[in-house]
Amino acid sequence: MLLLTCPFCGPRDESEFAHGGYARKQRPDNPQMMSDDAWVDYLTVPDNPMGPVREKWWHVRGCGTYFTVERDTRTHDITDEGESHAS
């Protein structure tokens, strides 16, 4: 059970959160301008490292903030507590 640090609430138990997917590149403004392959790539090909991965967490049973952290997939060590996405 991870201990995640919400930018608003501070360190909280994993049971307050939902995994928000890996932190992919920002959704392009113009999907229409992209080739089919590029679009499918953006949607379906994530980074899958054995090591630090950037991912989002949603504080669903908490303040509702989405934030990004860097977590090592081998050890669960949080190597970078990212910033909140909320303005």
Binding site: C9, R12, D13, S15, E16, R61, G62, C63, G64
Partner: peptide
């Protein structure tokens, strides 16, 4: 709930959403 309710962690005028019985509370 897994919320740490000790006075040091959850102060006198503390209020927070957290998880309780698997729900948002």
């Amino acid at each position: 709930s897994p919320l740490d309710i000790a006075l040091e962690a959850f102060t006198q005028n503390g209020v927070s959403y957290s998880e309780a019985f698997g729900l948002k509370a």
